[in-house]
Structure formats: structure tokens, C-alpha cells
Design a protein around this nucleic acid. Structure first.
Lengths: 183, 183
DNA sequence: ACAGGAATAGACCGATTGGTCCAGCGTCGA
DNA sequence: TCGACGCTGGACCAATCGGTCTATTCCTGT
């Protein structure tokens, strides 16, 4: 609920935005909600993000994406095989799901439902390909050939996105834990 | 672009709502857009849907769900095996993706990003389970044992949802056509 | 032909939306 | 000590939001 109070205003704005957009979507969050959640005045928003809400949404998406990239790295770093890494990733996500609740994928909520804006779509796609590339690299590190690494990475992405959605509908993270069986 | 003009107002409203919510999300569509797209005055909206936007969203989601159920049935009816049916479903969806463009899953866009409302969430979950149940029944019809039918149905759902999302990010329906290989 | 409900048409409303603007604040280096 | 400047605080704005209400038109059964 509370964002760490000691954080600088800009970061508080980004994190509040990430949280709120994830739960209610880009259009579902007003500046009023945003500012009161981040305990920041309107002036600060437009100081740090001259283009206002859309700038902030971009930054929030990037921030959320970085978190995800770290989670992927953490899962595959200690793993013995690709499937091991994929499995721990799914389990870590299941735990995260239980903690944060039944929210959407932060990128989808922030960028896909945002303004028609081409930039938004491009950024979302860029972020997703970043995730896939990260998994891809780990797959190659485990000795998988290039093309196999790519399809495995894409498959894992698809499973997680779809699994998260079903988990959300059911308010139950179990689906996420059964995903690795499909690889 | 144009909704069939001969359709009764109520249906025009539902279909316009389904279309617009799917592309811009529940909060992303205002009543003004909605009414001008459906070529209906405000009075008609509140006559057919006393609770306004939220009532309409529910109806639109149900309508979209029925379309999906018909698509599932059509795919499995002419199939020889479960995997055959699943494959044609994926291909039909890929074609649909190319036609409608890069929109979200209509249910997710309409109900998940909608008001916090418990009804919305419940309806979304109900619809999803309906799709899974439909696939489940076809699976059993092909002789699969109960539990296998269930996991197969859930897996297909997960693949389609995740695949659709990646296809959307890439603006390319190819992902959808590669999904059956994962069953 | 006419009564009466269903449906349409749109003026109108208060609340909220995203965004602008400027006065003040605190903290630097000179 | 004093600007200068990064940042905050919030008053203010037009536009739009979802929703209400009433007058009118359309259609149908009798």
C-alpha cells in the first residue's frame, strides 16, 4: 500500500504509477489518484515529466520491465538446465502473484490500453522482446542451438502471459506453477 | 468501420461497445465515442441499459464471449482428433487477428480494466471458464479421460491468451499458428 | 382512429479529467 | 549575503466525463 516515503519524488511518482496502472489500467487512473498515492503535488509531476501522464507511463513501464528482467536473471542464474530456470521463474512469479494480488501484466495495462499513440505500442513491443531476448541468452548459455533457444524463449513468454491471465481470473496462482510441464 | 445500419439500436450499442472497448479498454471509451459510433442518442442507451456504461459493458462482454464459443464449436465440430480441432481453432483465430487488427482479448479489455466492481471480475471469470468448459467437452467427446480433458482445455486457453498478446505486440499473427506444436 | 407504451432525441448537470501557470521554497556556488 | 535554480505547492482552466430528465416520435393492439 504505502510507497517508501524516503524515496525521491520522481521515483515515488514512477512506482505509484506502476502500481496504479497495473491494477486499474492507464485510463482508469486519474492524476488526482496518482498524485495523492505518491504524495506529490501536481507541479512536481510536470517538472519531472514535461509531457505529463504519458511520459510518466513510459517511465513506469520501463521500471516495471527492469524488475522483470532482474527476476528472469535471478531465476536462470542458479539453474542447472534451461527447464530448471524456467521452472523457478514460474514459481517466483506465482509467489509474486500471491503477494501483489490479481493485477494485470504491468506493461499491457500501462501501454496497450494507453493512448493510440504509436510510441506506446513500440515501447511495449520493445520491452517484451527484451524479456524474450534475456531468456534466449540464458537458453544459449545452457548449450541450446540458436533457433531452439528462440522458440523456447517465445514459448515461455506465451505460457507466462496466458497463465498469468487465467490465474488472475481465478484469483489463484496454481496455474502458474503447472506451466513448466508444457515445455 | 460501419456497424450494420439495419440492426436494432440495442444490438448496435452492444456491438459498438464490444469493438471500442476491445481496442481502447473500458475507461478509454467515453459515452460520446460510444454513441456516435453506434449512431444512437443518449436516451436510447439508458433506456436499454438502465445502469448505463457498466450494464452495456457486461452485455458487450457476453456478446463477444458467445462469438468465441461459436468459433470453438466450429473448430472442433469438423475435427478428427482433439489436436486437429485445437489447430484449426488457432488458425481461425490467427485469421481473425489479421482481420480485426491488433486488439486485446475483448473480455480482458472490457471487464478487467473496468470498475473495481466485483460483478465485473466475476463475469469475466465466468466467461473464461465457459470457454474452457466448451473445449473440455469437445476433448471428452474425442475420448480423453476427464482430467486430461481438463488440463488440455486449460493449456489451450493459456496458449491462446499468451499467444494473442505476443501477436499483438508484434502486429503479426504468426505466433498463433505455431501454438498447436506446444500441445 | 386512437390510446399508450416503447423508443428516440438531445438539452442540461455537477464532478472530474489532464494540463497550465506562477508564487514560494530550500539549497547551492560565488 | 545574495542570486540562481531545482523543486514544490496548489489555484485555476477548458474540456470531457457519466448520468438525469423531459419532450417528442414511432409503433402496435384494439
Amino acid at each position: 500500500m504505502m510507497t517508501t516515503p524516503a524515496l525521491p519524488t520522481k521515483d515515488r511518482l514512477i512506482q505509484s504509477a506502476a502500481t496504479l496502472f497495473r491494477t486499474r489500467g492507464y485510463h482508469g487512473v486519474g492524476l488526482a489518484d496518482l498524485l495523492s498515492h505518491a504524495k506529490a503535488p501536481k507541479g512536481s509531476l510536470y517538472h519531472h515529466f514535461p509531457n505529463g501522464k504519458s511520459d510518466l507511463a513510459m517511465a513506469a513501464a520501463t521500471w516495471a520491465s527492469d524488475q522483470m528482467l532482474r527476476l528472469i536473471a535471478a531465476s536462470f542464474d542458479g539453474a542447472k538446465t534451461f527447464k530448471d530456470g524456467a521452472t523457478t521463474l514460474c514459481f517466483k512469479l506465482a509467489k509474486l502473484f500471491d503477494l501483489t494480488g490479481w493485477d494485470t501484466c504491468p506493461i499491457a495495462a500501462t501501454l496497450f490500453e494507453g493512448p493510440d499513440n504509436t510510441e506506446f505500442r513500440a515501447h511495449a513491443s520493445h520491452i517484451y522482446e527484451g524479456w524474450i531476448a534475456e531468456v534466449h541468452d540464458h537458453a544459449e548459455r545452457f548449450g541450446l542451438p540458436e533457433d531452439e533457444a528462440q522458440t523456447n524463449a517465445e514459448n515461455l513468454f506465451v505460457l507466462i502471459q496466458g497463465g498469468w491471465m487465467l490465474a488472475r481470473a481465478r484469483r489463484d496462482s496454481d496455474v502458474l506453477r503447472t506451466l513448466p510441464a508444457l515445455l
